[in-house]
Computed example of a mutant assay.
Amino acid sequence: MKPEVIPIDSPSDPRLVRYHRQFERKAHMRDGYFVAESQFLVQRLLDSPFLIESILVDDPAKIPELPPQRVGQFPIYALSRDDIKELLGYNFHRGILACGQRPARSNIASAFPGEVPPTSTILAASKIGDFENLGAIIRAACAFGADAILLDSGCADPFAKRTLRVSTGHAFKIPIVESEDFTADLKQLASFGFEHFATVLSDEATPLAKVSRAPRSVLLVGNEGYGLEPETLAHCTHHITIPMLRGSDSLNVAMAAGIFLYHFCHAQPGGVTSE
């Protein structure tokens, strides 16, 4: 059974308001929606448990194969390619978009609807302002097996179009908490038995090769320029680092996060070993 397609002849049609360029960023966050672009991301969204408000295509032939449970869940609109370009303000959408509803997760407890697993890894990010860096971090956290991602209010939008493109839709596969009170969430994790590991650039920090994860570990990464802020570091029992050669003084935060995540998600629990 082919899904019904609803033709629309104007980019100003109110049914398409959430696709409009002026509705991006903070407006999407306040309203609880996001837009995914391209056949690949729309298919990953369809295969996820996320609620979908609508799909928009420039050609009905581009409508993806709908999972059986998705048929009839939402409208599918068709608008000409030129009108979609006018609606979005650019022509990078590849002729298919979907509007999804972001999950209501404002504190870390919402990532664990049941009991917290005895062995858990949470990636906590503070002030990661670059969309591409955040997308790459989300992709690595999901791929390497983190249980959830905690973001403070200074991070880029994890469901912005650029972030979703770089994350390749992995944001649909792992719980992401957009924290309303980052400090309170870190404290709550400590009450759950989590140990906090701050990633830093310091000769006094423990080299990653000498770090063994705690059964419940929070791995914290900070801003691309200055790292974690002092008030965040104050919540961390462990300071860890990646030693570098040839005078290198830093790595891209997404690359560094991937290295730390692989180590933590594949190591046996046992605490931090000292020199």
Rank of each mutant, 00 (worst) to 15 (best):
K210R: 14
N252S: 13
I176E: 04
G169C: 06
G222F: 03
S202D: 15
L189E: 03
V211C: 10
F159H: 09
S217A: 15
D152R: 04
T237K: 13
A171I: 02
A156S: 14
F192R: 02
R213D: 01
H170S: 15
V221S: 08
L251W: 08
M255E: 04
Q268I: 11
Y226S: 15
E224D: 12
A234P: 03
I174N: 03
A198D: 03
I242L: 14
S212N: 12
D203S: 14
F264P: 02
L208S: 08
S248K: 12
L208V: 12
T241K: 07
H238A: 08
D157F: 13
T199C: 15
L228E: 01
V253W: 01
H170R: 10
K210H: 13
G169D: 02
A190S: 14
F260R: 03
R246F: 11
S202V: 09
T199I: 04
R213W: 00
L201M: 13
P215A: 10
E204V: 07
A234C: 05
G258D: 08
R162L: 15
I240M: 07
A267L: 07
P230A: 09
I176Q: 04
C236Q: 02
L220R: 00
L219H: 03
S191W: 00
V253L: 07
P207T: 12
D185T: 08
A257C: 15
I240F: 00
H196L: 14
V221Q: 05
I240L: 10
R216S: 09
C265V: 10
L208Q: 07
K161W: 00
A267F: 03
G193F: 04
M244Y: 08
P269D: 06
G258W: 00
V218P: 03
F197Y: 11
V211R: 00
Y262R: 10
F159L: 09
A148T: 09
I176D: 02
F260Q: 05
P243D: 07
R162M: 14
A171T: 03
G271I: 05
V221G: 02
A209S: 12
S167D: 06
G145H: 10
A171Q: 06
K173G: 03
P215C: 06
A214L: 06
P215I: 09
G145Q: 10
R213Y: 01
V177Y: 01
A234K: 13
A190T: 13
A267E: 07
P243G: 09
S217H: 02
S167P: 06
M255A: 14
H266Q: 13
G271V: 07
F194P: 00
L151F: 04
K161Q: 11
P158E: 11
D147K: 09
A146R: 03
H196G: 08
E178L: 10
C265D: 14
H263M: 09
A256G: 15
H239L: 10
E178K: 13
K161Y: 00
E229Y: 07
S274E: 12
C155T: 05
R165A: 05
F159Y: 15
H266Y: 09
H235G: 07
P243I: 07
K187V: 13
A190Q: 14
R162S: 10
T273S: 14
P158Y: 10
S191M: 04
S191Y: 00
A256C: 12
V166K: 01
L233H: 01
A184W: 00
R216T: 09
L208Y: 06
A214W: 01
A148F: 06
G193H: 04
L233Q: 04
T237H: 08
E178Y: 05
G271C: 08
I240C: 12
H196M: 14
T273W: 04
P269N: 09
A257G: 15
